[in-house]
Design a binder for these strands. Sequence first.
DNA 1: CGACTATCTGACGTTGTGTCAGTTTCTCTG
DNA 2: CAGAGAAACTGACACAACGTCAGATAGTCG
Lengths: 215, 215
Amino acid sequence: MTGQVRTVDGRVAGRRGQATRQKLLECLSEMLSTSPYRDVKVIDVARMAGTSPATFYQYFPDVEGAVLELAEEMAKEGATLTDLVAGRNWVGKPAWAAAEDLVEGFLSFWRKNDAILRVIDLGAAEGDKRFYRIRMKILNAVTNSLTDSIKELQDKGRVDKWVSPAAVAGSLVAMLAAVAAHQKGFQSWGVKQAELKPNLALLVHLGVTGKKPTK
Amino acid sequence: MTGQVRTVDGRVAGRRGQATRQKLLECLSEMLSTSPYRDVKVIDVARMAGTSPATFYQYFPDVEGAVLELAEEMAKEGATLTDLVAGRNWVGKPAWAAAEDLVEGFLSFWRKNDAILRVIDLGAAEGDKRFYRIRMKILNAVTNSLTDSIKELQDKGRVDKWVSPAAVAGSLVAMLAAVAAHQKGFQSWGVKQAELKPNLALLVHLGVTGKKPTK
DNA sequence: CGACTATCTGACGTTGTGTCAGTTTCTCTG
DNA sequence: CAGAGAAACTGACACAACGTCAGATAGTCG
């Protein structure tokens, strides 16, 4: 373990230090969900946390650095997503349940962490390796597991040989992430929240098994 | 038509004004594709355009305002996407071709405009109605057309009744957008660019028709 | 040319950044 | 429990960017 929370100048932080650091992260998180990323300022975060900007800089090099920290924190928790796909059976009725659970879990995870996730997405899209790595870390569990499932079906001849399990899995996961990020957007296509889930599950099921689900 | 390019204080811009305004937009675009959105500064854009910041503020209220302009500009051009889906036949072999063309066109459009598009995506995800509207405008053509195609198949009994055409179409389009935004990302799942396209087309085909394609 | 308008910009007050030296607060030992 | 030493915090500062406005400059037309 790397463990050990450190200040910017390399010192190891003690109890009190950890606490303010954490508080700063919380306020940053709050800030991110209430104002556009571009407008999040060190000075505001510090003010909200009841400290001075100088204190902020003791723990983080800049806003981006703190965001990365927040992201890393969430990525750890995001290991939850593994449970949504681990050891699932993608044949017959269980497959439909698997698809439904995956969609449900994914959407709710995203809804809970939308503010950070959209910043991570931006950073990754901009080509920042650090954000990119974190995005990977979060999605990897799901993607790899789906890839394996598809590969398995493929070996059994239930999925065409020319299909690339990784490409399909990756695309499905990207779809889930994108839909989750723009959940509200769907309402103005006249799509209700409740309606969205089964249709996503359908697409996941189709993608993985190549067949319509048997409910 | 609203037409008429105006300065921030409401005056109508003349020939020279239009030119510098356009130059500023071009430089902004350049800037967006070379540095993170958060770091794009008015002063840099102005410098690059060989003018002063004050001039920038004559034409745009702030960076965001200029980005919106850029986005609107691109959205007009993005009507191209309509051609990818208009009047396509989603049955049999033509369906596969339709899916392939849609994917190809979508990815290349995204690649060409990735810088703005990711900012639009961020703005929309943050709940900014203006960005949201533009994102809509770009995706609407494709989504609506796909929705209609699915509805048609549904009326003919080729797609299950419980399927929501709008939800499926929206999700597929979101998938295309997300994959396009993270095209590079796929390479590290070990997915090659060339491999990606047919697999995306497969997913689109499956989503629209509910069946495996007949190549 | 001269007057009129469109366009540009220097200069400025304000806000935010990032650093450092010095102060405050905590902790632990003698 | 004093007080030394370490940990944590912050005021103050130099610098960068913002956004405004009055005035300078450039273009146009009689």
